[in-house]
Amino acid sequence: MEMVKSFLYPPPPSILLNSMSVVGLAALAKIGWSEIKGNHLKYSKFNNASSSPQTQPQKQSFGTISSRTGMLWLYTPAFLAASASFFVLPSDDLRFLLVKSALALHFFKRVLEVLFIHKYSGGMAVDSAFVITSSYFSSTVLMLYSQNFTLGLTEPGFDMKFLGIVMFVVGIVGNLYHHILLAKLRKEEDGKKKEYKIPKGGLFDTIICPHYLFEIIVFWSFFMVSQTIYSLSFAMGTTLYLVGRSYATRRWYLSKFDDFPKHIKALIPFVF
C-alpha cells in the first residue's frame, strides 16, 4: 500500500470519481473483450458486418454517418472540454497545467488528422460514434475534475510527470507518423476506389496496429503526468480496449489477405 501511495495521489473525496474509476475500467475491458469475440464497434473496416470473420449476429445499428463526420464527433467534444478547462479551472499548478495541455494537444492533433490526413471509405455507425465520443469526453472531464482535487496536496513520493512528458511526445509523434503511413497507403490514384492494403513501413513491418500502441503510450503518459487514480483507471481501460481492437484487426487482415505475413503481430512486436 505504501508503494502505491508513492505513485498516486490519495483517492479524491468524490463518490462520482471513485465509482467511475471502477465503472469506466470495467466498461472498457468489456468492450475490448467484445472486440476479441467479434462484436465490434462499427467504424473503419469493422463498420460492415461482412468485414468481420465473426459468426455471431450483429446488434442493430441506429444508422450511419460519414466516416469524416463521425471521426470529428469522436474527438471535438473532448478537445473543447480540455480547452475550456484553462478558463473553467484556472490554476498556476504546473502539473495541472501539463495535464490540461496534454489533453488539449492530443485531441487537437486528432481533429487535425481527421480534417487533413485520414482517408475515408464507407461510414460510421451512430451508436458506435456515441459510445466512443461519450468515453473520450467523459474521461477528459473526469480526468480534469480529478486533478482539481490534488491542488494543495502533498506530491506523490515518486514524481513521474517529466517522464510522462517524454512518453507523451513519443506517443503523439509515433501515432501521427503511423497515421500518415496509413493515409499514404490508401491514397486514391487515377480515380480508383480506395481499398484496404497491408500496411508497410515503420512498425507496420512487425505489428499491424502501431498507431494503437502509440495511443496507449499517450494515455499512460496522461497518468504519469497526473498520477491520479482515475487517470490510472482510464489508461488501464484504454489499454484493454485497444488490445482487443488490435487482436480483431490482425484477425481481419488474416481473413482478407492470403499473403498477410504471419510474423506480424497485433500490438507488441514479436510477442502479441
Rank of each mutant, 00 (worst) to 15 (best):
R186A: 05
V4W: 12
L97C: 08
R110L: 09
V126K: 05
T76Y: 07
P210L: 10
G164C: 14
F87R: 05
A82R: 05
I117Q: 02
P12I: 14
S51E: 08
P10G: 04
Q147H: 09
V4S: 04
G174F: 05
I172P: 00
D92C: 05
Q227T: 10
L240Q: 00
I132G: 03
D159W: 12
A82F: 10
P57F: 09
S231A: 06
K194L: 11
V99N: 00
R186S: 07
N39A: 14
P210D: 00
H179D: 09
F168W: 06
Y230K: 06
G164K: 06
I31H: 01
F130C: 15
F219G: 00
T55K: 13
S255L: 04
K192F: 13
A49T: 12
L103C: 11
Y177I: 12
V111K: 00
W73G: 09
I208S: 08
G24C: 07
V166K: 03
L98D: 01
F158I: 14
Y120D: 01
K200E: 09
F107H: 05
L182Y: 06
S51Q: 13
A125F: 09
F7W: 15
S52R: 10
M236G: 02
Y196R: 04
T55P: 04
C209Q: 01
Y230L: 11
L72V: 08
P53A: 06
I36K: 10
Y247S: 03
L151W: 10
S21H: 07
S19W: 12
R110N: 07
F7H: 03
E113K: 08
S83T: 14
G63T: 14
E189P: 02
M124F: 06
Y136M: 15
M143F: 14
